[in-house]
């Protein structure tokens, strides 16, 4: 929970259990529908495709029949030390709100893409095209997230609007919007996953499942030695999967790159 961007009482985070993910893609589809991510007729040129959530395929690198496969869903890591925030010349992306969600404000963005270059997780996407839906399909857009035009960068925001809605619901019900129970605010991908691979909650709150899971001996974060301090954790009982989370030298012990977090 260290970081140059302040201490937060609430730290929204995710723990993704890679032993449970079977790579079906439900999270990716649910994310697009929830966040009005533009569709593309040809989505096979991956450099031009926008994926707030992307499921990567991991291989243990061995030949048949010793081959193993794992799937790794990748949202924005909402780093404790986000490199994107430091490089943004327009204050488009900040980590300035309780909860520690790294924001992205589309009307401010002029598309320089420094943030994309700086993000070690490739979690940011540039809109090469204006979003176009076939006639009528725009009526099925979600009301919660604005539609982004061509020329701006976009990314996962942990379904931030759902948090705002959960807080408003709590306010109307006379409850404390700062003490939301875990189920009050869940991201679209978390809910959609039929395998329960994604757990979402406040990493600082011992009553939230993520708090315990993030401390599991099997938990790790991607590219930890960069010091980005992601708020997204992964876990796997398989050592080769944990090793895939960073660039290990042959003689380095798995987990040796871990930056002990101080929560």
């Amino acid at each position: 929970m260290s970081g140059h961007y302040g201490q937060f009482d609430i730290r929204w985070g995710m723990v993704i259990d890679l032993d449970k993910c079977t790579g079906c893609g439900a999270c990716m589809v649910a994310c697009q529908a929830e966040n009005n991510v533009a569709i593309q007729t040809d989505a096979s040129n991956k450099r031009l495709v926008t994926n707030w959530m992307l499921v990567f395929e991991l291989s243990n690198g061995k030949s048949f029949p010793d081959h193993e496969v794992a799937y790794l869903p990748r949202p924005c890591m909402h780093c404790g030390n986000p490199s994107c925030v430091a490089v943004c010349p327009a204050t488009v992306t900040t980590k300035d709100e309780e909860g520690g969600i790294v924001s992205q404000i589309y009307p401010r963005c002029f598309g320089c893409r420094y943030c994309m270059a700086s993000c070690p997780y490739h979690a940011r996407y540039f809109n090469w095209y204006d979003p176009v839906w076939p006639e009528g399909m725009e009526k099925t857009l979600s009301p919660d997230v604005s539609v982004r035009p061509r020329g701006v960068v976009e990314k996962c925001h942990f379904c931030h609007h759902r948090w705002m809605q959960a807080k408003d619901k709590a306010r109307v019900a006379g409850e404390d919007p700062k003490a939301l129970p875990q189920e009050a605010y869940q991201t679209a991908c978390t809910q959609a996953c039929p395998n329960g691979a994604i757990t979402f909650g406040d990493l600082n709150n011992p009553e939230h499942t993520v708090h315990e899971l993030a401390h599991s001996e099997y938990a790790f974060r991607l590219l930890e030695r960069l010091g980005t301090e992601p708020q997204v954790y992964y876990m796997s009982r398989r050592e080769w999967v944990r090793r895939a989370g960073d660039n290990y030298l042959a003689d380095e012990k798995t987990g040796s790159v871990k930056n002990e977090h101080h929560s």
């Binding site: 439900a26 589809v29 529908a33 569709i39 009528g136 399909m137 009526k139 959609a192």
Partner: peptide, 16 residues
Amino acid sequence: GGVTPLAAAEAELLYS
């Protein structure tokens, strides 16, 4: 609460 990647896409298909 779980949903398949196909069922999750049904709304947009209204206007396919």
